[in-house]
């Protein structure tokens, strides 16, 4: 079983914090296939957050194929961190590393690189939405 918590100061959206905590538990083996996640009601009673935050986190995890909801029963872990997910990350990470090399070669320091990434990420999200 997993015990959720919320770090109000982290600046990370609450639902993402829950997602990260499940992912980490999967990686560490604290959660295995077949385990049940706490019900929405249990989570909100315990850590006093809006139910929609938990629904959203569980939906996201479902979307990633890590858990599955069984109607009227609860949400269950279907996979430990899937090798497929990791496999798709490798080439993307490789591209990013190459991009970082180019950015440094162009004379950008850490802060500028981070700012550039954030700005691009944000304006791309505007275009996408």
């Amino acid at each position: 079983m997993i015990e959720f918590y919320l770090d109000a100061k982290s600046g990370v959206a609450p639902y993402l914090q829950l997602v990260h905590q499940v992912r980490r538990a999967l990686k560490l083996g604290a959660l295995r296939a077949g385990d049940q996640l706490p019900t929405v009601r249990e989570v909100v009673t315990r850590i006093a957050i809006n139910p929609n935050t938990v629904f959203k986190a569980y939906r996201e995890l479902e979307h990633e194929g890590l858990v599955a909801a069984r109607a009227g029963v609860g949400t269950f872990v279907t996979a430990t961190t899937s090798d497929d997910v990791i496999a798709t990350l490798v080439p993307i990470r490789h591209d990013l590393e190459q991009w970082l090399v180019r950015a440094r070669a162009a004379g950008l320091d850490e802060d500028s690189i981070e700012a550039l990434f954030r700005d691009t990420f944000r304006s791309e999200r505007y275009v996408a939405s």
Binding site: R41, V44, T45, R46, I47, A48, I49, P51
Partner: peptide, 14 residues
């Protein structure tokens, strides 16, 4: 405070 809000949220979930 935490317990009060927890009760409130469990109501919303229910």
């Amino acid at each position: 405070r935490r317990e009060f809000l927890g009760l409130l949220m469990s109501t919303v979930a229910g």
